[in-house]
Simulated assay, not measured.
Amino acid sequence: MRSVLIHGSCVTRDAFALPGESRFWIADYYARSSLASAFADHGLEGVDTSTITSAFQRRMVERDLDKVFRRAMPAARADMIVVDLVDERFGILVDDRAGVGTPSAELLRTRGISPDLHRVAPGSVDFLTAWEAGRRRLMAEATAAGVADRIIVHQARWAERSADGARFDHQSSAEANHLLEYMYGRLRLDLAPHQFVRVPAHLVVGDPDHRWGRSPVHYVEEYYRTFLDLLDRATAAPPR
């Protein structure tokens, strides 16, 4: 079995939880964290995470605020570092000290979140500037640590429809996918073609019975199985 370090969202993590999957195991998982936040100099001050009852959700928020992934990645012993950008949809929060956090639902429910924080919307000029700084730092630090060749980008996209024929909001999906394609394109500046995994468009379909509920980023099982097959091929053979 090959080990996987994930910085991304449930679109990647859920694939490894499929019944019968035995090719990979998750070494660690960093969720709800924009690259703009993960590679910022410091997080937001005064946030009290004790109100988050779920240990996983509390750890997720604390890791984002404490920039743990930035410190953990250079020492990662995982066979691959899988990155997806679906949680860039949250944008970022910035305080007057240039501290940065990702405004997940869990963070916004904590005590100590000041109403004076500046919320930066995904896709805005300020967001893209901060995200670009995070991307550059990700690649610089991964290269310095000798792990850049282990990065695999899961080019996930929002679905436009569900398997039962229901349509998701077209404008929301189109805007999200436009931003995602731009950001994946920026990652291509530093990574080789074989480091990108993209599931065919006809499988980007929502599952109305998904365990996390109906959503344009909760896919049918065939999507996840195809992603794992593509990941297996991308990492099992040497690049050409």
Results as ranks from 00 to 15, higher is better:
125 V>F: 11
229 D>T: 14
124 S>H: 08
43 G>C: 06
132 E>F: 04
196 F>W: 10
8 G>W: 00
35 L>Q: 03
67 K>C: 10
196 F>M: 07
96 D>A: 15
50 S>A: 13
27 A>C: 06
173 S>A: 15
186 R>W: 08
189 L>W: 09
186 R>C: 04
25 W>M: 10
153 V>D: 00
218 H>Q: 09
205 V>D: 03
120 V>N: 01
106 E>C: 03
179 L>A: 12
155 Q>C: 15
183 M>V: 13
240 R>Y: 06
57 Q>L: 12
75 A>D: 15
102 T>Y: 05
130 A>I: 00
197 V>H: 02
46 G>D: 10
187 L>C: 05
9 S>G: 12
211 R>F: 12
124 S>V: 07
193 P>Y: 07
116 D>L: 13
139 M>D: 06
42 H>D: 08
130 A>W: 00
140 A>G: 10
99 G>H: 08
219 Y>A: 05
218 H>M: 05
62 E>L: 09
150 R>C: 01
29 Y>N: 14
93 L>Y: 06
12 T>H: 06
234 A>G: 10
212 W>N: 11
79 D>T: 04
26 I>E: 11
88 E>R: 09
105 A>M: 13
171 Q>F: 10
217 V>Y: 10
120 V>Q: 01
160 E>Y: 15
6 I>K: 01
240 R>C: 09
185 G>Q: 07
217 V>G: 00
81 I>R: 01
102 T>G: 10
140 A>T: 12
48 D>V: 05
24 F>K: 01
113 I>M: 11
167 R>K: 12
239 P>N: 05
94 V>N: 00
57 Q>M: 12
108 L>P: 10
123 G>K: 03
191 L>M: 04
